[in-house]
Amino acid sequence: MLKYIFKRILMLIPVLIGVSIIVFLIMRVFSPDPAPIVLGQHATQEAVEVWRQANGLNDPIYLQYFNYITGALTGDLGTSYYTKMPVAKEIFARFPATIELALVAIMLASFFGILIGVISAVKKNSIFDNAGMFIALIGVSMPIFWLGILLIIFFSGTLHWLPSSGRIDPMLQPLDITGFYLIDSLMTNNIDAFKDAFRHLVLPASALAMYSMAIIARMTRSSMLETLQQDFIRTARAKGISEGRVIIRHALRNGLIPIVTVIGLQLGSLLGGAVLTETVFSWPGIGAYTVACILKSDFPVVQGVVLLIASIFVLVNLIVDVIYAFLDPRIKYSKKEV
């Protein structure tokens, strides 16, 4: 198992090299020249040349890439053209917000998705099934920004229950330890901050969770329908155990494997930055920030973010594969199968 994990981590290297080359080329081929954007419309040709020279943009492209990748290997991802701050610092200032939002969203999505899926499968073709699948249909079809705006209008505007934007009331901001406000506020015993951070999370996390929840609910339903037909379910019933136990301990435990895959994929894409959600709710995360940087041709930041997201995506998939082995004892990652 350890050997398998190690091999998978090694396989990360070619993936990251490939991703870095692609994003490097795309930025340089399709993005406008950053110099006039950084220096302003009225910058002299001379100033532009000096800036390009200073930022290595006049070198041949393979040399630019070589300089970039050798820097990245030593942990130096470059500095932002605008803030002059190291890219790593820029990213890690915003990434916890995205992770916090994504994790809360995926927890909501998994809980309600599995719940709806199981009920729909067990009560197949009943009113519960139809209602559940109707919600799932809305979830996959509704544009997230529209859902976000509706939530803001209703819960924030009409009812005044929840805040519509930001992560926390700036007056309550907890000490920055991990960057996760929920954890930081608990660690500093700041209950008011925890409550406020939580209230700020509810709407964006719900909006973000809706799509994933719909996907998970549909997957759970079909997986459970298949599992409930299996012979061992009949055996479990013949043992005289309660139907609830048959469904949870026997059917769901077996039906969970494809569901875990879907949850992993969804989490990967949520961590990649929920651009629309972050924009609608003014969430200070990585997604909205990256879009701004793409528009401003801030090459080093965009490259750094894409590398980070690619690594996380691969790692989440690795974690899913490891979870498989725990869920299903028939899966063994031996040498042959890798």
Binding site: D231, T235, H250, R253, N254, D328, P329
Partner: peptide
Amino acid sequence: NKISMIFQEPMTSLNPV
């Protein structure tokens, strides 16, 4: 308990996990 049952397919009648 009082009535129990064994089935045709021993390969699939036991819970694999």
